[in-house]
Amino acid sequence: MAEAAKSGAAPAPAKAKKKFLYVNRKAPYGTIYALESLEVVLIAAAFEQEVSLAFLDDGVFQLSKGQDTAGIGMKCFAPTYRALGDFGVTKLYVEKEALSERGLTVEDLQQVTYEDENDGFKAKPSIVLIDRAALAKVMAEQDVILSF
């Protein structure tokens, strides 16, 4: 803030957006963490903050293709990740090392896209593959981190 004032940059908007990162580290159905995280993200989306998600450790399994929970009597919430773009959540960071440790590639994940309002509503990929060091930087840049 002080620096911005000195350099004569435009003042920050009265209600600056905060950066929220939801960190997902658990596989989807063995515990309630993944579903809870998704529900909190959907609620938080109404508050117009800058929200992104990170998937690391077993959290990368949340995005696996072809999930079918019919046999275990639980709600299949995998399709809901594809609706996140509609809620203004357009960045899903997926850690490369977490994928490769689990024998996965990005091909094993479902496709998630969002419509870019600033580019004629073109569909663009939401999933951003990122290595561990870069993800550590993303975490360091956040205002708030919520872990699940």
Binding site: R25, L56, D57, R132, L135, A136, K137, M139, A140
Partner: peptide
């Protein structure tokens, strides 16, 4: 759990 290991891999 790998919580600590993962934490140390991502801490700055």
């Amino acid at each position: 759990s790998n919580g600590l290991r993962s934490c140390l891999a991502h801490a700055s």
